[in-house]
Amino acid sequence: MNQKRRLKQKWVWNIIFGLVIINCLTLALVVKQSFSLKDAAEASAFVNGQENIVATVGDTVITRKDMLQELEGMYGQEMLTKMVNKEVVNQIAKKYKVTVSEQSVDREWKMIKTMYSRSPMHGNSSEELVKEQIRSSLLLEELLVKDVEIPESVLESFYQENKQLYTIEDAFHLSHIILETKEEAETVVKELEDGSNFTSLAMEVSSDELTANQGGDLGFLTHETQVYPPAYLTEAAKLEEKSWSDPISVDGKYAVIFLHEKMDGVTYSFEDVKDQIRRQMAMEQMDGSVDASIFWDEVGVEWNLSTAQ
């Protein structure tokens, strides 16, 4: 019984770890996009020390070189370690012919999306980055437990007793704009019909201070969500993706909601998740933290301390 309780807790912490992945990748996304916007001339100017001004504060000039040096000083070692660990995992996985399926990556990504409120990730590139990190994390876990064998009957018993852990409800990624009167809400709908941007309108006119600065983004909501009115999900179920609702009466005010994405619910079968359960059970028996550094010697990691620190 205690082991099952620990395994349930382990599953919860796995989800929390997934949320941390998103936050950790924010810097990577910013840096990646920054460099992707450079053309050959900008890169040459930076290498040659030429100033590329990105901001001015009074008489003080801030260049792209200043910005990148600041980023390197604050996060350079951390980012380098992440890059090294990712490559270590890839090489060790190739050596031992360990793989993870796209279905496993997609399942973890879906769990993260439905459980993380107000995700900052909206672009395709950011989703790719998160999935890349998920894949690396799953590969590392598989490498650590690759020699562990657990009877299938034990795995299936755990699955049958914990099916709720492997069920995802219908989920709706919503944003909203809160207005004081129906007339104001109808005006917002008219502006949307005329081509106004929902996010911009939410920042300008929504009276919900908690979400206005984020363009009204509420993240993914399910029928278990109790923070927002049930009417949101009722209306969302009628909408097409990338469309908005008519005014909805809520607590004496009016709301207009926008459906970014709908994700159909699913209950994963035992065959779908038995590898995940095996990893969880095996990892539960391990001491210490999960870290790719245990493979550094095997791969042959060498640090150039003059540039890495």
Results as ranks from 00 to 15, higher is better:
60 T>N: 11
172 F>L: 05
140 L>G: 00
42 E>H: 10
62 I>E: 08
121 M>H: 10
100 V>S: 02
219 G>A: 09
252 G>K: 00
305 L>A: 11
136 S>R: 09
88 V>W: 00
39 D>T: 10
204 E>Q: 15
274 K>H: 05
215 G>H: 02
51 E>C: 06
124 N>K: 12
180 E>M: 08
201 L>R: 02
207 S>I: 15
199 T>S: 14
232 Y>C: 08
227 V>M: 07
20 V>T: 14
55 A>G: 04
75 Y>L: 04
4 K>S: 13
240 E>Y: 12
169 E>P: 05
263 M>P: 01
155 L>A: 02
194 D>Y: 02
282 A>D: 00
189 V>T: 14
178 I>H: 09
54 V>P: 09
69 Q>F: 07
148 V>W: 00
225 T>N: 10
141 E>Q: 11
39 D>C: 08
203 M>R: 02
288 G>H: 07
130 V>P: 03
265 G>T: 14
287 D>V: 05
17 F>H: 10
125 S>I: 13
276 Q>R: 02
156 E>M: 12
106 D>I: 12
238 K>I: 08
46 F>C: 10
223 H>Q: 15
199 T>L: 11
70 E>I: 14
191 E>V: 10
196 S>P: 01
203 M>F: 07
115 M>E: 13
107 R>L: 14
30 V>F: 12
24 C>W: 03
181 T>I: 02
169 E>M: 06
262 K>L: 03
304 N>I: 02
259 L>T: 08
286 M>N: 05
269 S>I: 06
91 Q>H: 02
87 E>H: 12
